[in-house]
Design a protein around this nucleic acid. Sequence first.
DNA 1: GTCCGTTACGCCTGGCGTAAATATG
DNA 2: CATATTTACGCCAGGCGTAACGGAC
Lengths: 292, 292
Amino acid sequence: MNTRDLQYFVALVKYKNYTQVAKLFKVSQPTITQSIQRLEREFNTSLIRKDKVHRDDMVTRSGMMLFENAKLINKKIDLTHEEINHAKLKQIRFGLPPIIGKMYFSQIVNNTSEELMKRLKIVTGGSHELLTQLKDGKIDIAVLGSNNLIHQDGIFAELIATRPFTIIVSSRHPIAKRESVSFKELADENFINYDQQYFHYAALKEYCTYAGIEPKTTPYRVPDISWVKELVRQNRGISLMVKDGLKNEPGIVALNISDPIPERFGISIAVREGYFLSPEEEEFIDGLKMMK
Amino acid sequence: MNTRDLQYFVALVKYKNYTQVAKLFKVSQPTITQSIQRLEREFNTSLIRKDKVHRDDMVTRSGMMLFENAKLINKKIDLTHEEINHAKLKQIRFGLPPIIGKMYFSQIVNNTSEELMKRLKIVTGGSHELLTQLKDGKIDIAVLGSNNLIHQDGIFAELIATRPFTIIVSSRHPIAKRESVSFKELADENFINYDQQYFHYAALKEYCTYAGIEPKTTPYRVPDISWVKELVRQNRGISLMVKDGLKNEPGIVALNISDPIPERFGISIAVREGYFLSPEEEEFIDGLKMMK
DNA sequence: GTCCGTTACGCCTGGCGTAAATATG
DNA sequence: CATATTTACGCCAGGCGTAACGGAC
């Protein structure tokens, strides 16, 4: 089977117009007709209802099945081109979320040879954004944060470290002098709530469920961690923070959580499934795995 | 690009021998040479190291990348053929695990027209097995049990119901007359442990973690639910069971769990991503969603 | 020398274009 | 009748086979 036929077909289902598709690919219009006929022979089925051309139901059920699969096949072929083309540049395209970068970047530099650091092209962004880029072949390796294990379509992820959460409070807060605190004591506190894109958001919900409390939370959800810190510093409320997520932050205190709850912030290395690592990339990943 | 070339190439990487691949596909041997050359032109890269033919490192890094992707592309093409061929039969290929079937099958029959029931081809098996069959196109719709939401490569799953777990004990057991029990009271009990393939196994671990107990469990892991029941009936220990999982089982009693732990047995409907449901299949799924 | 892969060359199918025919509204 | 798709037919490239050549053990 010719993969061009799949491209023509996907475009035809989208545009529902042979002439437009022919123009799009800069071929004559009968070429499209013939391409569809080839596919219909190949799959021994009718794909387009000739009597209903230009109507919304012109595509048969078999046609829809082929459409859905052909889109994925075409995407995979494009990704393959992208991967192979990029491999020639010998770059290591690496995604690192800012939150994790802040905690770990100095360790990464320590564990990585200068030679490899030169090759590194670092992309930052939220874990969700980086996952998309990884799938699309824009980056090849990413470190991602998550509450649970990462089970994503076409992504191979390995958990390399976990960190417990802590409670952060203003140093003016009554409990600021304690070392640890049980979640149940916090039922009457006001929590600064994170934006949903943060794991902290889901983690806070989990903690509250298991502790059996429903504390007040801010009605707004703060989209940036440094803003959360600022609010806590001003004693507007308390919040969650990954342990050691504070560095030289006067006015804020982090308290361990004493409940035996296994909720932790997980850090994983993620690679596209089926991506074949270069020796340099393997060396780099070995360095990453030494992070603690 | 010709998809036959991808098939030749995948076989070549596996066998590392042009002649064998030619025999496998019943073509002449120069055909394989030319096919590889076509691919090398298409991707503008070298795929096979000519100087190291028949050696383990005969495939270049680009070749390995193409290999990994080509395998997936070929599989997807096969799946597409499989799907389209099967669509002609108008069957509804439906997977249902025995555990869930026992609880819900009568409801499924009630919610499904006789016409649809005739079309139904039911496949039973563990949830893991059914997932594999779903991915391979052996079945098209499955009901699956799980603890968490299902996030699987290429599978679209929708949670339709959850059931709480109960503790099952022999009717001779001291606590058999109670209605409910807190997990913490069970620290000294002996638990019959399930095989890892069961969600019960993971659920038990979660419960114990959150209750902060580490009870005795049987050193063996029982691979069949009815065996677990039999052991409980004989008062050899207690165990977990999905609520209403017992029907006419004399000698066993189910107790609600009073802890506010959100661990539940989830029941999801799963469909291959990109699979285009027939009207009959949609009707059938609508019936499934009415289950409680 | 033997086994395996590549090159050379001829054949035929397959994919595309142009032009004419046909269908749809 | 106008616009859109299919059919007819001719051209050339692409994929395959046979046979000869080249390289590795």
